[in-house]
Design a binder for these strands. Structure first.
Lengths: 198, 198, 198, 198
DNA sequence: AATGAATGAGTGTTCATTCAT
DNA sequence: CATGAATGAACACTCATTCAT
């Protein structure tokens, strides 16, 4: 779904995408109008159709693109990291950092699932599930090697992801705590929560 | 064309409320139309206005009512419970159980903050903050008595609430795990996460 | 059309009538709602139908009643007044004084003709024409006796009525000029305008 | 579903304006619906909004435009006319001729003041006052030079304007009297009404 | 490649009116 | 008799979308 061409048209497309993300986060997908979007971009509403066939294609484009990117990025970060403990630590660091950096996309991805067409929602949910499986696999491996102890790997991975994702609902750049401090707090909570006590 | 046989105002009002919650969860506040709502209730669209002056008053009514109820219920449950450990355990039990029982209202309350009028949003956020303060106070007291050890009571309470609330995004009645099992899993995760290690 | 009975119901009817006149002048017939009217009277909207079958009957009632009253009153005032000059003077005095006293009804009668049903409009126009004929007859008689000289009695009577009626568009009680002063000004204008010069 | 063949924006806008004037005169501003208007123009109701942001902007547009035009036209006609007598005669001729030609706009301007927004009403009233001042100034100058004698210049100018304006409530093209005859009748009435008798 | 003009289905909302209670 | 509950048709207005220019 990612835009690739280097033409001028592609720059307009990127601008539409970026502006759409901003406006959808501000007002919600349903409440954002194409006229608003077009005006913010500096074109006419009708011209958006040169780049995106319909309003819901624009949303699908953004959300699927985001999920693909985040999944690939996590896989890349975990590549070569050995041991469940290190892998879990890496995940926490990655997840929070990514959610802080791409707060808008993440916010959209959690809020606007409902607005997707059935087909697009399926694809997004599949990508989300793949992401969750990466986490629950880390927990399972940790339990197998006797480092972690949780009652249920799947539910625990949901719980951990839910905990970490909630950061983007209150985080504001320039707040009391910077990214590193926030990551440290959550790393400790997560690692303690799952670690097997001697 | 007039009062339908056997109709009673207060019953209609409750029916509108309950139906509205269901439809807003299904389609989102913006996407739910008053005609949809009215048809589901079995009345005319205009008749909704006898009970709720406007669509956004309906949402405000539901959300403020929900937040007041949940806050009062938590305070009642915590009354008389001594000790940070027991209080935290009680909170986890209460929060998940409530979020499972009132899944729809909770889902609404997290998703539709944006759709509220400024005034209503202020009130809901104030109630939400009061709820969060109850939790962070438990953490602070636990730290004071040397039972808990977290880097930051406030952020940790956000994290815990975020973790527990995410349950209502995947829980379905009759699924693999019942309420008690889900509560047990999360209780262990939370208590271990905050407990001071010797 | 006038209300006559002395029962309690009739008092409510009068109250509805009087309140309706006030509200219609304030907001216009179309813009006044029956709920507004009912609330101002202190009853429910549905109860208005006990007294007036429909909103447009209420308007018809008021306007026809007003026109009948004003026509009768003018005839009464002119009865026994001899000579075109005195009769014209009497008319000017009566017309302005009445329009100042019953400013609201007069205002309604000029503004809301359009809102009447065809049938009611016919009746009002017939009454208005009878009123105008009284005036043009005075002019004709004055011309016959060589006291007045106008090019056209009918158009002149329209012109005179138009001139005098415009008073109720700017008159406010307690303004710079009282009724008597206003009447004097217009009497001079009218009498000079039609009088034959030697 | 898109631009209809040969359509031009400015033509559509003029057509909307002209049709709106006609329909508002026929039914009144409140009673005219945008669907009626659109159908009469031959477009969809929503398309009116390309040209006029709201129904009351349409009315404001028409009324302010009319008042500005009539004020400018009177000033142009009076320019270079010397002497209160000639100036008053010129005014009568101009006012009636204009009110006969633009009967619809004038009728609107007198009837629909109430329907304007506060801001638009202020502007219209200011223009109307400027118009009235032109007339009362003529009367005052005539009194100063001993040609006119009225008790009150301001009230008399209201009376004269009221008299002349009432023409557009009964005038129909092709009636018994043509414009010139009607003007002659009113010129005589006005001039005699204000002239000083020797 | 983009605009400007238009559509048509839909939205929240209002309101005169009716009638069971 | 009056109210409270409901209707149903209408209204102003919005918006994604289309397509001639």
């Amino acid at each position: 779904m990612a835009r690739t061409k280097g033409s001028v048209g592609s720059e307009t497309a990127s601008l539409i995408r970026a502006t759409a993300i901003r406006l959808m986060v501000e007002h919600g997908y349903e409440a954002m109008t194409l006229r608003q979007l077009a005006e913010a971009v500096g074109i006419q509403a009708g011209s958006v159709y040169r780049y995106f066939g319909a309003k819901d294609r624009l949303l699908a484009d953004i959300m699927i693109g985001h999920m693909e990117t985040v999944l690939n990025a996590l896989q890349a970060r975990l590549a070569g990291v050995e041991g469940p403990l290190q892998r879990l630590e890496t995940f926490v660091d990655f997840h929070i950092r990514y959610h802080i950096e791409k707060q808008a996309e993440v916010f959209l991805a959690t809020m606007e699932l409902r607005s997707l067409s059935d087909e697009a929602r399926m694809r997004v949910l599949a990508l989300r599930q793949a992401y969750e499986t990466l986490v629950s696999t880390i927990l399972s491996e940790g339990m197998a090697s006797g480092i972690f102890a949780v009652r249920d790997a799947k539910v625990s991975s949901f719980a951990i992801i839910g905990m970490l994702t909630s950061v983007c609902q209150w985080y504001r750049p320039g707040g009391r705590l910077g990214p590193d401090a926030i990551i440290a707090i959550h790393r400790d909570l997560v690692l303690q929560a799952v670690r097997k006590l001697d």
